[in-house]
Amino acid sequence: MTDDSVEKTARPVAATEKQPSALMMWLGIADNSFTRQKTVKFGDATAVNSGRLYSIITIVSLLILWWVITANGWVKPIYWPSYEAVGARWTKLIDQGFRNVPLFEHVYISVYRVLAGVFFGAIIGIPLGFAMGLSSIAKGLLDPIVEFMRPIPPLALIPLFILWLGIDETAKISLLFLAALFIMIIAARSGVSGVKISKVHAAYSLGASKFQVLKNVILPNALPEIFTGIRTAMGVCWGTVVAAELVAAEKGVGSMIMIAKNFLQTDTVVIGIIIIGIIGYGIEMLMRLLERWLIPWRGKG
């Protein structure tokens, strides 16, 4: 009996210690029981905790910094607004909108442009990418265009699109379509060329026709890549739409920021920036969630 207890306390590892509380785990500052018994932690990525507590500290200190510098008048309101100014502007924007357009509509129009651009980019880009991965004719025809367009940032095309299509909706959605198109072509192409030949062989020797192989093997096999493509396209298009609206637009978050700047409404600019950040983050999270739900086999072939 006594021998047992002596042996237990003599062990160097913390196996007998209490489990860390759920709160500590959520805050990401306590090692789980497995990590605690690892002796090599530096260089082991799985031993790095989320450190959520420190994220909270970062956010809170930034907010405090904001409050301190504006409340004490260390920064002029024209460079950075106070909480009160932002709060007042926010109520006003919600009540009256910006330039007679409701705030919601500004946000909605930007999101709508992104979704339309990505949608058409995917609808056209995925079949083209598939064709490039499956036929040497399509590959030969499209390769120069794709490789040439790939390094060009969509923003560099804005002047051309304004010249060709003016500043209406068509011009913006076309620009976003083009930005999404090449991302989707490249994603679909690499999804097709990434299919394991043994899977294709297996399908053929199970009696599948060419079309069935395409539909039942190549397409599902390319889905993870296609989804990554959609995610990237969403991100790029969100950045592009704001920039495009900065140049020329009546509505949209980007135009709201630009016009507010002309009237020195720094508070509106800050609100616009925060909205852009939150929506961009939201899109990314939503896509990850969708991905986990739609493609659970990702990376497990």
Partner: peptide, 19 residues
Amino acid sequence: KGPAAARGMVFQQGALFEW
């Protein structure tokens, strides 16, 4: 003359359809 259902194949591994 080509693959057909009359000749089934079992591969080493990783030829299952993971989806």
